[in-house]
Nucleic acid binder design. Sequence first.
DNA 1: GCATACGATGTTATCGATAACATATGTCAT
DNA 2: ATGACATATGTTATCGATAACATCGTATGC
Lengths: 336, 336
Amino acid sequence: MRMQDIARRLGISAMTVSRALKSDASVAPATRAAVLKAIEELGYVPNQIAGSLSSSRSGFAAILVPSLNNPHFSETVLALGNALHDRNMQLLIGNTDYDRHREAELVRAFLARKPEAIILTSDGHDPRILPMLSKAKIPVIEIWDLPARPIQHVVGFSNQLAMRGLIASLIGEGYSRITYLGEADDAETRGASRRLGYCEAMAAAGLAPRLCSIGRPPATMSDGERGLDTVLGAYPDTELVACVSDPLAFGVIAACQRRGWAVPGRMAVSGFGDFEIARIAVPAITTVQIDAGQIGREAGAIIGEAFKTRRDAMPTAISRLVPALPCLRASTARPG
Amino acid sequence: MRMQDIARRLGISAMTVSRALKSDASVAPATRAAVLKAIEELGYVPNQIAGSLSSSRSGFAAILVPSLNNPHFSETVLALGNALHDRNMQLLIGNTDYDRHREAELVRAFLARKPEAIILTSDGHDPRILPMLSKAKIPVIEIWDLPARPIQHVVGFSNQLAMRGLIASLIGEGYSRITYLGEADDAETRGASRRLGYCEAMAAAGLAPRLCSIGRPPATMSDGERGLDTVLGAYPDTELVACVSDPLAFGVIAACQRRGWAVPGRMAVSGFGDFEIARIAVPAITTVQIDAGQIGREAGAIIGEAFKTRRDAMPTAISRLVPALPCLRASTARPG
DNA sequence: GCATACGATGTTATCGATAACATATGTCAT
DNA sequence: ATGACATATGTTATCGATAACATCGTATGC
């Protein structure tokens, strides 16, 4: 069924049907009502492929995330989806599964469908996507981390500064034998930034870094369970395990409890991200709090901005920071 | 940049370029190589919108899930994405946020883009989507739950039977004062099926159902934390809280631990779904294990089947069951 | 040696909505 | 009353790739 069919049935032209479906076009109210009624009755769904080809407006933006199974990303996706919905745009989601090659494939696949904007989660990218993105002439937004060399717009926070702040606070609490537990092969991921932040904070306090790693990104609770042994093998005198993420920290805590070690009495543990589990776990987990929804909303606002100043090539890259604050909880509480 | 431009540069026709990009078309190897080289150099990305309009093959399937932040759904999405990737199709994901109205909107939005198949997570649907789906003449697959009245294909398991099996096992362990903690307003959701399964198991053992609810779907860890009070308010003699999901169960356990109650000594707790946390938590949580990846793979296989027997309207609806097995762990262990 | 087949490529029409332009009717100010 | 202008609608061309058909040259079989 095409617009033509609807039009013929009403004795009008397809163009009028098309206009009746756009809220701003000039159509007589009676005509519009008749069109909408016919469409409803016939269950007609316009072919957006044809519409997009003709108008060169695809009506969607694409977001690529490394993992769906992550409360932060899903919150960002939800917030961005809502922001775009308000602008009559759809959000299409791609899952890179922490794989750069797959990310590159997805960028190509999405660009072929002509998104009006693309949002990348800014771990390192395959260099081949850069020329594709610049040729596409659409807003590109990198979210979550602050990349060393931004492609265009950025919304996020500095993982490095955030972790540095957390570790500095913990050192301030009197901890010094702090061992970092991160992911293996984390080059150019947010894990690497956090590790760097840890090292800086330790160095600032005149302490030598104590680094361990386990599993590949994303770190899981199971990695944490195994991770405690790794940490103790390398640094038996550890008094606090600073983990790259909350699920990892939860796994470490579970491993301690299985050994009958009190947390924080015998071993303190910190995480990163303020996942729900960090608040609910017993003990509650010290972490860094991030407003994932805010990142999505800011990204939506940037897309809105970019469309206003359209036509002439994007003039200025926008960069917005969201807060990332240390959040000390029971898992690192000092006795007394 | 269009195919035309590539073609002109090579002194050939656009059609040859088009053919060079399809793996099965007959093009001289030398020509194909030249085309691919030119495309690579120029960074040309074919306009799939035009391609789809012309060939009436959009090259993607759509999946709607109620939540991204759920390890099961994300695993299903991942597995289905891989299965489709092998068939040269892309998977586009929509998030209904447990909202039927939003689901209906998304169905319409996706159908406008002419997906070649659509996968729904089978909670109750807005009835208005049914005529749209049937007019679309594409495979429709409902996953996860077994709907009372399937639209077409189904891949899943019976939440009702699975919960009944779990509760029966727990009764077999000697528990009788089992209180169910589910979500409010769960009509026609998988939560309702699980509740029903609980009631059946209790009835079969001659026990009266003890029902409580808290929060709206999806149940969170925080709901569980508050839920313990609700349960104890209604049924103070409860010896086991059977939760509609693992995160809820984890919250209940955390609440017990905050009170200083031993789990399972003072209170036993069960969940549903075998999320990672159910294995890692201390104590590990009794639950029902589901192979979410299998659901995605089966769905992919059904799409493959449907495409083979295409052209003539889908002949038979396929229905596949995946296992859902009770998994007794420490959180419901009997003393001794 | 000739007909048939097939492999490689070109040409034309088409997918369905919409932009751009054209037309008709009515309204208002001078 | 009449031109200027807005409103409502129709007509035609277009977006870019591809299906369908056409063409041409060469290999193959008898």
